[in-house]
Simulated scan of single mutants.
Amino acid sequence: MTTVEVYTQPLCGFCTAAIRLLKAKGAQVVEHDVSTAPGKRAEMMQRANGRRTTPQIFVGDTHVGGCDDLYALDSAGKLEPLLATG
């Protein structure tokens, strides 16, 4: 399994749900808290093509998107193969 980077912020239910799903799939999750780490929000926005909301999820170099995008990928059966190759 590859490492998954998730840009988060406190009290974000979508962040919690995304991380819960990723961990259930066996992914190693690295969180970047955009509210406390200087420059992380700008980094996130640059990597996510301007998206400002959290979470923003990256499997390797692949930008998955937010929580809804992650769950859609899982529903389509594409999350586990991505995690295996990511």
Score class of each variant (00 low, 15 high):
15 C>V: 01
40 K>D: 05
73 L>D: 14
83 L>K: 11
82 L>H: 14
65 G>Y: 09
81 P>E: 15
62 T>Y: 13
81 P>I: 10
22 L>K: 05
77 G>R: 11
55 P>V: 00
31 E>F: 04
27 A>C: 03
64 V>D: 09
83 L>Y: 10
67 C>Y: 06
18 A>D: 06
66 G>T: 06
41 R>G: 00
71 Y>S: 01
44 M>D: 01
6 V>R: 07
45 M>T: 03
50 G>N: 01
76 A>I: 09
49 N>E: 07
66 G>R: 09
27 A>M: 04
57 I>W: 09
82 L>F: 10
60 G>S: 06
26 G>S: 11
13 G>Q: 02
32 H>V: 07
13 G>V: 00
42 A>R: 03
34 V>W: 03
83 L>E: 12
51 R>I: 02
32 H>E: 08
15 C>W: 02
53 T>I: 01
14 F>A: 11
75 S>I: 14
49 N>V: 00
14 F>N: 13
76 A>G: 13
41 R>Y: 03
65 G>V: 01
38 P>F: 02
64 V>A: 10
82 L>Q: 09
79 L>K: 15
29 V>N: 03
6 V>K: 01
58 F>Q: 06
28 Q>Y: 01
13 G>M: 04
37 A>R: 09
63 H>M: 13
36 T>F: 02
76 A>K: 14
25 K>D: 03
36 T>M: 02
48 A>G: 10
12 C>I: 01
21 L>T: 04
13 G>Y: 05
25 K>F: 05
54 T>K: 04
35 S>C: 08
62 T>D: 13
70 L>C: 15
20 R>I: 06
55 P>I: 00
56 Q>G: 09
36 T>P: 01
26 G>T: 08
6 V>Q: 10
6 V>H: 05
3 T>H: 14
61 D>N: 14
35 S>G: 05
19 I>A: 00
59 V>P: 12
39 G>K: 02
29 V>K: 01
7 Y>W: 11
1 M>W: 10
62 T>K: 14
20 R>N: 12
54 T>N: 05
37 A>H: 06
52 R>A: 08
38 P>G: 00
2 T>Y: 09
15 C>T: 07
53 T>A: 01
66 G>Y: 08
7 Y>G: 11
12 C>R: 12
72 A>K: 13
45 M>R: 11
67 C>P: 10
12 C>F: 04
15 C>N: 09
12 C>Y: 07
81 P>K: 14
26 G>H: 12
37 A>C: 06
59 V>G: 15
15 C>D: 04
51 R>F: 03
53 T>E: 00
28 Q>V: 08
27 A>Y: 00
40 K>I: 03
44 M>H: 10
70 L>G: 12
9 Q>H: 06
69 D>R: 10
76 A>P: 09
65 G>E: 07
24 A>H: 14
68 D>E: 15
31 E>P: 04
37 A>P: 05
46 Q>H: 09
12 C>P: 03
23 K>A: 05
50 G>F: 02
